[in-house]
């Protein structure tokens, strides 16, 4: 049986137009609260139009009519069935002191795995430089690290050594922030390679770090090295590990081994946490960039190494306290297991 399309359109068109008008109002202002009567009317119009679509689909295969109705029904369906949770107001302070550390603790295992991979990379890098001096040129991507460590220390400890960055510190700081944030984002994104890319990226960064550490230690520049790296490394390295943690969380959801949950549901469960981790990581890298440009580049005698190392140790302790204690409820129900990100 073929539907009488002419009559069908004539009868139903006013309802479709009414529904379209409602949708346009809603789409122009998604946060608008509808009155009770409006809600009832909207629901009626949606159901009537959906029923019209069902009729068209059953009795008459008219592509243009069907496309029109599908468009209207899809928009109304989206407006009716999307829950209000997404419109929750974001509170930055509450997110920083509560959500971020809680999410970090919830996914502690991937963070620890990342730390182990970084250390493994470090051992590899150190061994490579220790066994083969030429490996230094391959492993270290930055030109200023390729020279002799002692020459660099002598140069930078000179009376005017700290002036080499004068007039460029803010630019240097912003370059560090953006570069490191891009690396952290890439570490997270590479989680989509079942984590293989994330692991390789962290391992490679560990190898660079290990090579630098051994190079300076062999040259007898431990104090300079600690005073140079610790103030910004106290935030930078954990931040990169958090980016990698996000990548491994994503990989875990993708693989879903031993979990009888659909891929879509697994990914949905970690989505908010991923955003929280990467946003927190970005924030830490802003701090690390500021410290590296405006503090780490000053060496003794301008800034005593004991002061720089003390500052770095203090940062590490505060960071450890923050991630261990912040956002814990004093007593009561356990922290939620579901995603609570942005």
């Amino acid at each position: 049986m073929i539907i009488d399309l002419d009559r069908f359109i004539a009868t139903e068109r006013p309802y479709w137009e009414d529904l379209e008008a409602c949708l346009q109002t809603l789409e122009a202002d998604p946060d608008r609260r509808m009155a009770y009567d409006e809600v009832l009317r909207f629901d009626y119009l949606y159901r009537r139009t959906a029923s019209g679509l069902a009729q068209i689909a059953t009795y008459a295969t008219d592509p243009q009519m069907r496309a029109y109705l599908e468009n209207v029904v899809a928009r109304a369906y989206s407006a009716i069935y999307t829950t209000r949770g997404g419109g929750r107001r974001f509170r930055p302070w509450s997110w920083l002191r509560g959500t971020f550390p809680r999410v970090f603790r919830r996914h502690l295992a991937p963070f620890l795995v990342s730390a182990v991979i970084l250390m493994a990379g470090g051992v590899f890098g150190a061994l490579a430089v220790g066994l083969d001096g030429e490996a230094k040129a391959v492993l270290m991507p930055f030109a200023h690290l390729q020279g002799d460590p002692s020459e660099r220390v002598t140069r930078e400890e000179q009376a005017d050594g700290h002036k080499r960055l004068d007039g460029h510190m803010a630019q240097f700081s912003s370059q560090l922030m953006t570069h490191n944030t891009k690396v952290a984002i890439l570490a997270m994104a590479l989680g989509m390679t079942w984590g293989i890319g994330t692991v390789l990226l962290v391992f490679y960064n560990g190898a660079i770090l290990g090579a630098v550490l051994l190079d300076y230690i062999q040259a007898g520049e431990r104090l300079f090295l600690t005073g140079w790296l610790l103030p910004h490394g106290a935030f930078e390295i954990p931040a990169i590990l958090i980016g990698s943690q996000a990548g491994l969380v994503l990989a875990g959801a993708l693989i879903g081994r031993g979990r009888p949950v659909a891929l879509r549901a697994r990914l949905m469960a970690v989505r908010g946490d991923l955003v929280t981790l990467i946003a927190g990581c970005g924030l830490m890298l802003v701090w690390a960039g500021l410290v590296e440009a405006f503090f780490s580049q000053y060496h003794a005698p301008v800034l005593p190494y004991s002061f720089k190392i003390g500052f770095g140790v203090l940062e590490l302790m505060l960071l450890a306290l923050f991630f261990s204690l912040a956002g814990r409820e004093p007593a009561g129900p356990a922290t939620p297991k579901h995603s609570e990100g942005l």
Binding site: P30, Y77, S78, A79, Y81, T82, G86, K182, I185, L186, M188, A189, L190, M192, T193, G197, R271, G272, L274, V275, I278, S339, G341, L342
Partner: peptide, 17 residues
């Protein structure tokens, strides 16, 4: 359904890969 903010962020950050 309507997009959530986390969906928008994730799909755009994963442009990196």
């Amino acid at each position: 359904l309507r997009l959530r903010f986390s969906q928008v962020v994730i799909r755009n950050l994963l442009r990196a890969v």
